[in-house]
């Protein structure tokens, strides 16, 4: 009785260990190219500078029917003059396979600090817009988007 129990216990452990190895093998390549977090991505963009909340307005629908094309716009309060303007507007996401979305380079010639585009969101998550001003300061606005999952997804045939 006892022997049998020990044997089966060992087997179970072997099995567990085996699965762990298998799981590691499956996960490792993914982990090796793990994406930076949203905060890390923003830090890379700002070079570690302080990011203040305000002056940026990120408009994105709170709920979207399909994450393959999510329309959004960003507006930044700025006179857009030679001496006081927005230099760059960057978009980042929290949960796509890659944190970067886009970096827009603007200036006095654009007259306003307003851009719009369509992005992909793999799942419900936070999107962040960061504006870099000509004085070197960074401002941000975040929005949460719920992506509803399509009920009928086409098989790749």
């Amino acid at each position: 009785m006892r022997d049998k129990a020990t044997t089966s216990g060992l087997r179970r452990r072997d099995l567990v260990a085996g699965s762990a190895v298998l799981a590691l093998t499956l996960v490792a390549p993914r982990a090796a190219r793990a994406r930076p977090t949203l905060e890390e991505a923003i830090r890379t963009f700002t070079g570690g500078a302080d990011v203040k909340t305000g002056r940026v307005q990120l408009a994105v629908p709170p709920l979207v029917e399909n994450g393959n094309a999510v329309g959004l716009s960003v507006k930044v309060e700025s006179p857009m003059s030679e001496t006081d303007h927005v230099r760059r507007i960057a978009l980042f996401n929290e949960k796509n396979p890659q944190a970067d979305v886009a970096v827009f380079h603007i200036g006095p010639r654009t007259g306003r600090a307003e851009v719009a585009t369509r992005i992909r969101l793999a799942t419900s998550q936070t999107v962040a817009a960061i504006a870099e001003m000509s004085d070197g300061s960074f401002w941000s606005h975040r929005a949460d988007v719920i992506v509803t999952l399509a009920a009928c997804v086409e098989d790749l045939l």
């Binding site: 094309a69 796509n96 890659q98 886009a102 970096v103 380079h105």
Partner: peptide, 9 residues
């Protein structure tokens, strides 16, 4: 100008 990544639709 814009730098675009795969998250652009």
């Amino acid at each position: 100008s814009a730098d675009l990544f795969p998250a652009i639709a």
